[in-house]
């Protein structure tokens, strides 16, 4: 594939930090059905250890390895005939194990995917079933999920071994509102946050299960999603996206917002809005935050990347000749952006 470099060129704003996305590889999944998610995982086998790409469509999940020939070779494929795949659930720091969420309109199953060298077969054991509102993989081989709604909501942290076997289940005190999304807190491993359907930000102690704070944000859009939180100097900095914002004015309706929260007083303030550069239109559809980089697929089919430290859009990736982008994910190494299209094509860009 020809190298394809895209960077923002704006001579007016000299101070703007420009990023560069350079295409390094293309993977074409031949499943024939609509692509639903993509991710990366370190995979160790008898004859190789490599950072592999995981592609998910509704009926199957495939693991891909970059071969010396420059092509991508399928390592394993897991098939799902009863319940469709909704998303890949990244498991930070975990090797040779993939987690997927399956269901119809909402998640009804969470499964681990791995390969058993004992019998030479791929396995897909069930980890959890129910009306699952949100799920997130945490550091140190843990998985948090919320089931049910309102008074009947159960929030649970599931610890697992290297082989994916259950070790321990810890209940977290449920909030009165339904959880929409969880996020880890960088710099505070035992803290967990979530955003609820009524735009309350909830803080837990993961070790004790205590609900420490519930903070109504009040100034955000209903249905916002929390992606990441950073703890620093007694404050929490939380990155939110707004999938339901209006498209009309991207400056008023940014793709991401950073809010600052004082957990001690339960007071919060809007800190930074991550909007599109002038002349670029589109509304946030979906995306991911990793380290200090945030990537979003816009309704226009373009992917936009922001630097959270500088608060600026650093790169834009317009649709290519094959079509619009539908997925944007950071690799586990932070340095690559995986850009996916509905037909199962995955383009890998190095981001500098």
């Amino acid at each position: 594939e020809p190298l394809n470099e895209v960077a923002i060129e704006d001579p007016v704003e000299d101070s703007q930090r420009k990023g560069s996305l350079q295409m390094t590889s293309k993977l074409k999944s031949c499943s024939g059905s609509c692509s639903v998610d993509v991710g990366t995982v370190w995979w160790e086998a008898a004859d190789f250890t490599a950072l592999c790409v995981v592609t998910a469509c509704e009926a199957s999940v495939s693991l891909w390895r970059h071969l010396e020939s420059g092509h991508w070779g399928s390592v394993h494929t897991w098939h799902f005939t009863k319940v469709p795949v909704i998303q890949i659930v990244p498991l930070p720091g975990v090797q040779s194990l993939v987690c997927v969420a399956l269901g119809g309109l909402e998640i009804s199953e969470i499964r681990f995917l791995f390969y058993s060298s004992e019998d030479g077969c791929v396995k897909q054991p069930l980890v959890k079933t129910g009306n699952i509102n949100a799920v997130l993989g945490l550091k140190n081989r843990r998985l948090v999920s919320s089931c049910g709604s309102l008074q009947h909501q159960e929030v649970e942290v599931f610890s697992f071994s290297e082989t994916g076997r259950s070790k321990e289940r810890q209940a977290l005190m449920p909030p009165e509102e339904t959880v929409l999304a969880f996020a880890e807190v960088d710099g505070m491993q035992e803290a967990l946050i979530a955003l609820t359907t009524t735009d309350c930000l909830v803080v837990w102690n993961l070790t004790s299960g205590q609900l420490l704070r519930k903070v109504p944000l009040g100034f955000s859009y209903l249905g916002s999603v929390c992606h990441k939180a950073y703890s620093d100097s007694g404050l929490l900095f939380v990155v939110l996206s707004h999938p339901h914002a209006e498209e009309s004015n991207s400056c008023v309706n940014p793709a991401f917002q950073v809010v600052v929260l004082n957990p001690k007083t339960a007071r919060s303030a809007r800190l930074m809005s991550l909007s599109l550069p002038l002349g670029i239109t589109g509304r946030y559809l979906e995306g991911e935050v990793k380290g200090v980089s945030a990537a979003a697929v816009l309704t226009s089919g373009t992917i936009a990347v922001w630097d959270l430290f500088w608060g600026q859009c650093t790169a834009l990736l317009p649709p290519n000749s094959e079509g619009s982008w539908s997925l944007a994910r950071w690799s586990v190494t932070d340095t690559c952006l995986l850009a996916g299209q509905k037909d199962g094509s995955v383009y890998i860009y190095s981001y500098t």
Binding site: M173, A191, V203, N262, P263, K264, T265, A269
Partner: peptide, 23 residues
Amino acid sequence: HSESDLGPISINWFEELSSEAPL
């Protein structure tokens, strides 16, 4: 943001809230 916007800040908020919150 000044401290007056967000109220007094505590570096040890996590331990302090954990000692106050019901188990």
